[in-house]
Design a binder for these strands. Structure first.
Length: 568
RNA sequence: CGGGGCGUAGCGCAGCCUGGCAGCGCACUUGCUUUGGGAGCAAGAGGUCGCGGGUUCGAAUCCCGCCGCCCCGACCA
């Protein structure tokens, strides 16, 4: 490929609205262009990388027995209404209407298409198990698309669905996919961790997330410094602190004018925030629920939501406080009526003589103690985990890491096959719903994750096997005929060796070409210029290491080939 | 959806407060010089100043409404 004959619009300045490295560099290096929020055009370089990632995914899926098909993006609404996702996904679905007024949508994921497809044509247990996949664009009208390819409203996903007779089969299909995913992410070369994820409010099947490590990642996970514990932040439970023995102080009311937050109370009374007892109020389908945690901790709403699923958990708003007659910011657990469910995190057992609200504006109490002064109906691990918490396995220190979820696999059981009436006839003649699994990989998101993990101050540093091109041949003096001839010879020879090579034959100064080559991140650069030619040599540079070398004209092709073979 | 910010040439920005010729750098075109780490000089081309309305002799600038984009929070490959 010649740069004069393709479309690689590099930018000299950083785009103003790209904050993170992957977004900024993919725009600057001419890989992508934004069309509208969360929707990007893939230019030639991006397309080449996408295809290489896809190829790895495809190979490993097929090697694992999954069969590729292509199902539509434009979908009828009915199956989605049957599973309840038409409503549950809500505004996240791009909804359409056809000319007859029929409701349609763009596919955000495709259980509703795959399950009926299989049910229609593979009605016998003899047809099972089967695993189908596709690589196709997905559409989700995200609340907040951001960071370029990291969270788009249109993104390329590999999605696979397994269908089994029974639970044992499903687990086996799941295991096969789990191992395929390990091979895929190993081959792609991402630094990643696998965590058993929050079962989520959608039903609670076993599922694992494949998380690419990245400081800008939006997904948090927890791991023990001793390496024996790894979990999704919302699923992680710290080791409970031991109960303390303390001399019980009497409960005393104190004036705390204007101190409606933990921070202000602690400051006014000159105490640590951890000494205060935080009372967070929720409404759960009409029932009032109080959650007690130490003042320096946060309540995990997700954990609470999971506890009450399928009921809907909603934090109290001002109207709720008014209706219940609670003084917002001054709520204390000693004033709860019997109809309030009082939940507490085990860490509350570890404290005594709490400072908490007095149930009157501008007043708090000190010396509040469990049993004597307030009750707890249920003990549940509900604190948001944080750095420094103790590992539940060995008590080691936990640390919170950031990541980008690039793969997610689920055991769905009959969650979708039931409502969709997707069933087969078993050996005994009985009608049974398929036991399903689903397996997603965000292809375009992997591009972003790769750039996050592989860049420096000059630009992207693609791993060799995923780079848009292996080698760039730079004409340092584009209008010099001998230089051009020699560069063309090397370019052609590399191509003949099956190396993916691009020649920068633009009428640009050498500096521009060097900067662009570093920005785009070709693993190996070969520079042909007057200077070197006079000495009978070309210059080579390995992008990742920055290592420079020279080679004679005769050795140039072999030297570039060798450097490429040794590149990361 | 709540909070914050921004929309002026392809990209990055100034001008707006205090209304009066629409500017700067890069990129682009032509010429000359230059030529191995983002060249110099000269001459050009490129704008519904996000959209609509209002105030005014006059609006990029003031007022009202809308739209778009980015960032922070609750959801997700």
């Amino acid at each position: 490929m010649r740069l004069t004959k393709t479309f690689v619009p590099t930018l000299r300045d950083d785009p103003a609205d790209a904050e993170i490295a992957s977004h900024r560099l993919l725009l600057r290096a001419g890989f992508i262009r934004r069309l509208t929020a969360g929707v990007y055009t893939s230019l030639p370089l991006a397309l080449r990388v996408i295809r290489k990632v896809e190829a790895i995914v495809r190979e490993e899926m097929e090697a694992s027995g999954s069969i590729e098909i292509r199902v539509p993006i434009v979908l009828p609404a009915e199956p989605w209404k049957a599973t309840g996702r038409w409503q549950r996904y809500g505004n996240e679905v791009f909804k359409l209407e056809d000319r007859h007024g029929r409701e349609m949508m763009l596919g955000p994921t495709e259980e509703e298409v795959f399950a009926p497809l299989v049910a229609g044509d593979l009605p016998s247990y003899r047809d099972l198990p089967i695993n189908l996949f596709q690589v196709e664009w997905k559409y989700r009208d995200e609340k907040r698309p951001r960071f370029g390819l990291l969270r788009g409203r249109e993104f390329l996903m590999k999605d696979a669905y397994s269908f089994d007779r029974d639970e044992a089969g499903m687990r086996e299909s799941y295991r096969v996919m789990y191992e395929a995913y390990e091979r895929i992410f190993d081959r792609i070369g991402l630094g990643y961790v696998i965590v058993e994820a929050d079962p989520g409010s959608i039903g609670g099947g076993i599922n694992h997330e494949f998380m690419a490590l990245a400081d800008v990642g939006e997904d948090l996970f927890v791991r023990c410094v001793n390496g024996d514990y790894l979990a999704d932040i919302e699923a992680a439970t710290p080791e409970a602190a031991p109960a303390v023995e303390a001399e019980l102080e009497p409960m005393v009311e104190v004036e705390t004018p204007g101190a409606a937050t933990i921070e202000l109370v602690a400051a006014q009374l000159g105490i640590d925030e951890a000494r205060t007892l935080k009372n967070v109020m929720f409404d759960v389908d009409g029932q009032t629920v109080a959650v007690l945690v130490p003042g320096d901790r946060e309540v995990s709403e997700k954990k609470l939501a999971r506890l009450y699923f399928p009921k809907v958990v909603r934090a109290f708003d001002d109207d709720d406080f008014e209706r219940r007659g609670y003084a917002k910011g001054y709520v204390g657990p000693h004033g709860f009526d019997r109809d309030v469910a009082v939940l507490a995190d085990p860490s509350v057992r570890a404290g005594a003589n709490w400072v908490t609200g007095a149930n009157r504006t501008d007043m708090h109490v000190t010396g509040m103690n469990l049993e004597r002064d307030f009750r707890v109906d249920r003990w549940e691990a509900l604190v948001q985990i944080r750095d420094g918490d103790r590992c539940p396995i060995d008590g080691g220190e936990l640390e919170v890491g950031r990541s980008i979820v690039v793969g997610h696999i689920y055991q769905l059981s009959t969650e979708y096959s039931d409502p969709l009436r997707a069933s087969f006839q078993d050996e005994d003649g009985s009608e049974k719903p398929y036991m399903m699994g689903c397996y997603g990989i965000g292809i375009t998101r992997i591009l972003a994750a790769l750039v996050e993990q592989n860049h420096d101050g000059e630009g992207i540093v693609w791993p060799r096997h995923l780079a848009p091109f292996d080698v760039v041949v730079i004409l340092a003096n584009a209008d010099d005929e001998p230089v051009r001839t020699e560069a063309e010879r090397i370019y052609a020879a590399l191509g003949q060796r099956g190396i993916e090579v691009v020649i920068d034959d633009r009428e640009e100064r050498a500096g521009v070409k060097f900067a662009d080559a570093d920005l785009i991140g070709y693993p190996v650069q070969v520079t042909v210029g007057k200077r070197g030619l006079a000495a009978g040599t070309v210059d080579l540079k390995v992008r990742a290491s920055g290592e420079r070398s020279t080679a004679t004209l005769e050795d140039a092709v072999q030297a570039a080939t060798d450097l490429l073979a040794g590149a990361p």
